[in-house]
């Protein structure tokens, strides 16, 4: 079987799709909509810091961030090529998309650890 990187990118895309589906809506609902609108109060800094102090929570958060970024990168790569007819620049678009995901992943890792 000829080696290609696509299956690994697809596994990251799929894993990220599951993570994004299961976790992101509730997080953006709470932190992005309900708390800023004042429907529910912001938790205290101490409470949220306590959650982040748990190394397992930070690790899980990093995994979710990396997977979701690769999910988004993969879809943005294909969608931009289909929408704008720029599939001939696939290598460049792939570098930009996955490169962006890697930058985000490193930022997250440096932030959390």
């Amino acid at each position: 079987m000829k080696r290609t990187i696509e299956p690994y990118l697809w596994l990251l895309f799929s894993g990220g799709g599951v993570a994004a589906a299961l976790l992101l809506p509730v997080l953006v609902l709470l932190f992005g909509v309900l708390m800023p609108l004042g429907v529910i109060d912001w938790p205290t800094v101490a409470h949220l810091r306590a959650l982040l102090d748990n190394v397992l929570v930070r690790l899980a958060l990093l995994v979710v961030i990396v997977l979701c970024l690769f999910h988004a990168a993969h879809r943005i790569r294909f969608t931009s090529e289909e929408l704008f007819g720029i599939a001939r620049y696939d290598s460049l678009i792939a570098v930009l998309c996955y490169g962006g995901a890697i930058v985000g992943a490193v930022t997250g890792a440096l932030l959390l650890f």
């Binding site: 994004a20 992005g32 961030i65 943005i76 985000g104």
Partner: peptide, 8 residues
């Protein structure tokens, strides 16, 4: 996917 990236 664009909004997924934004949410992250």
């Amino acid at each position: 996917s664009v909004l997924v990236a934004w949410t992250v």
